[in-house]
Amino acid sequence: MTKNFELILALAFLALLAVLALVGLPGNILNLFIFMMIVALTAQGWNMLGGYGGLSSFGHAAFFGTGAYTTTILQTTFGINAWIGLVCGVALGALVGALIGFLSFRAGLKGSYFALITLAFAEVLRILANSWDFTGGASGMMVSLKNSFWDLQFADRRYFFLILVVFVVLGLFLTRWLERSAFGAYLIALRENDQAAQALGVDIFRIKMQAITLSAAITSLAGCLYVQNFLFIDANVAYGSWISIEALFAAIVGGAGTIAGPLIGSVLLLGLGEITKSFSGGIPGIDLVVFGIILVLCVAFAPNGVRGYVADLYRRRMNRPPSSPKIV
């Protein structure tokens, strides 16, 4: 399965979703698709740093929340239009990414250390957002309901879904670009062996900085779009660990360091979460038990993500040698 083929398949899948949405889907399915796209975008951001750069973050909520709060505050407190809010949200999210990156990469953090420091930054932001007045404190913030293109809210949610699909497509192309670029090659090189990469003259600090900034920008975009759909955030929604976990779950289950992985992962995980709801048998919690077990089985039988599993099946069918398992 070539990279281009993977990209085309992903695009075809999104086109199919878009057509389905246009033809008419029940509201609950459309709502699920919208949330899938938001998580896919968040995970695409995570994938840039965690998948290609091997720097797994547990704190992408820091970027998601910064995007979400920025656009909300600009819209509600200053009456600025949602698109400008979105641009500012992405910019500020990227800045927070650069700041966290600067501090942690200066200190040479990687592996679990990097993961834990990102978690700590997100927690600090969560506690602050919960107590500051201009973030609405514990009551959170509401974006008022205004259906127009400039408010990035639509009476017909299919428009919003299509906009999300466009952003996810851009994410796919960006990832494909990254794979071909020199920047991407350096990033993968430092994931595989950062000392060797440095010895070969790669400025690994600069590459990591670029990667985290890009990664943060995409995830904060997802945060901005989240607000436009749900119209409400508080500190636990915006900076809570749930979204950090959702992002890394989706990317790794789908296939970290691949073009379509984050999309595959978010569609599978959220779809699975809905399907398992019918297994509860009236006992609360059983559905999530089933969900968790399937997750563990997924890791056990598809160690390179679902994307890798499918690629191996395809190869086997074509009688080609399997790819060697890659340890990210």
Partner: peptide, 22 residues
């Protein structure tokens, strides 16, 4: 089930915690 990879372990332990809690 984790095949010794960091990401695998991360996912399996997180998955286990969901199973146990529920």
């Amino acid at each position: 089930s984790s095949h010794g990879s960091d990401n695998g372990i991360l996912l399996v332990t997180l998955g286990l915690s969901i199973v146990i809690q529920n």
